[in-house]
């Protein structure tokens, strides 16, 4: 059957459809709420802790060196948000193939004159846009910070870029998991397990030696976020996220093809 890259019309049609389904479902609103509330909680905690340290620092000038809101609040906040993403991204991607397969709508969708790649990209872009919106709502916290202090703008922007790239890698893996089953919960569980593995693979780096340590370190999905939150866009990190994303998207395309055979 035809695969290969699709045209923009088909992608747009699927994209719009998925966005509509997102905002028609209670899961989307639950995810938004959870994400805002938990990141808000982290923000509040970081802020309180930072004020405490600053208050002490004002009495003891020795402590004050290197103390700023970017390092003290913004960066840890991004780190925490990446952890929340680990939990919520599987919820965003779980239904994309599994539920359509279960409801039988995928059968119809795949008989329209759209290529598999167009269906996949439409879904991927919709999940990416949804995650983008999700991240955007948390811009509230840096804005609040700007009322009261002067955080550096650039690390905030690159930090968000890094989080979005991280989300894209999560989405592509989640799509693969969703394409493997008819059950959303199974899809979410698989995705969560796989993401967690990608996350903790960095820990293996501490035990391994030499080239292995380097490899594990490189594979670890969250280590690549660090430079972004420092306001640096490094090619190796960019390549990593885009590479992981393309790899899993490609695997999903193959999985769709195999599923066609099985019916």
């Amino acid at each position: 059957m035809d695969i290969g890259l699709g045209g923009p019309m088909g992608i747009l049609a699927i994209f719009k459809k998925e966005m509509r389904v997102y905002f028609a479902s209670p899961i989307a609103y639950a995810v938004f709420t959870i994400f805002l509330v938990i990141s808000g909680f982290f923000f509040y905690t970081l802020l309180t802790y930072f004020s405490l340290i600053s208050a002490q620092a004002s009495m003891n000038p020795g402590l004050a060196t290197g103390l700023n809101v970017t390092d003290g609040i913004v960066r840890p906040l991004f780190g925490n948000m990446s952890v929340i993403l680990l939990f919520v991204m599987p919820l965003i991607t779980m239904r994309l193939f599994a539920e359509e397969r279960k409801q039988g709508t995928l059968e119809l969708l795949l008989t329209y004159p759209v290529r598999d790649a167009e269906v996949l990209l439409g879904k991927f872009l919709a999940a990416t846009a949804f995650s983008g919106l999700l991240l955007l709502t948390t811009a509230l916290y840096p804005l609040l910070l700007a009322l009261w202090s002067e955080p550096e703008l650039y690390p905030i922007l690159t930090g968000y870029l890094g989080l979005l790239l991280l989300a894209m890698a999560f989405i592509s893996l989640g799509l693969l998991c969703s394409s493997l089953t008819e059950n959303q919960i199974v899809a979410a569980t698989l995705a969560f397990g796989a993401l967690l593995l990608f996350w903790i693979i960095g820990w293996a780096a501490m035990l391994a030696e030499g080239d292995w340590a380097l490899l594990f370190r490189y594979l670890s999905i969250v280590d690549h976020l660090a430079s972004f939150t420092q306001g640096v866009i490094e090619t190796k990190d960019l390549v990593y996220y885009l590479g992981v994303t393309s790899f899993f998207l490609f695997a999903t395309l193959k999985s769709m093809e195999i599923r066609r055979w099985k019916g």
């Binding site: 088909g10 049609a13 719009k16 459809k17 509509r20 389904v21 028609a24 759209v114």
Partner: peptide, 16 residues
């Protein structure tokens, strides 16, 4: 979750 018109519109888009 779609209305009849929304759904048919989507199908029309998918059919190009």
């Amino acid at each position: 979750d779609f209305t009849v018109t929304q759904y048919l519109n989507f199908v029309g888009e998918a059919k190009g």
